[in-house]
């Protein structure tokens, strides 16, 4: 699984992307967030308030209950502020 981070989520995690193999019990976005948050202090800081973080699975916005699988590209970022 390719996991990407953007904006302040990237700054807090400390890296822009990583290749990960979450355990089988990680089935959806919310499960992935819980698993990631336990990895490093940077991850914990980024996901300290999950309500502030948005997600995309395979480049489409994804809700917390959206499934995630081994070959997915999953991204985490703050609410968007373009335009």
């Amino acid at each position: 699984m390719r996991v990407l981070y953007f904006a302040w989520v990237r700054q807090k995690v400390g890296i822009a992307e990583e290749e990960l193999a979450p355990p089988a019990e990680v089935r959806d976005v919310a499960g992935l967030v819980a698993w990631l948050a336990a990895r490093t202090p940077g991850h914990a800081a980024a996901f300290a308030d999950p309500r502030q973080v948005r997600a995309a699975v395979n480049q489409d916005f994804a809700a917390p209950d959206h499934p995630v699988a081994a070959n997915d590209e999953v991204a985490f970022f703050p609410p968007v502020t373009g335009g």
Binding site: A30, P50, A63
Partner: peptide
Amino acid sequence: RSSHDAAAPRAK
């Protein structure tokens, strides 16, 4: 609606 609901990945 589906993209608007793409809200926080809050814990279940």
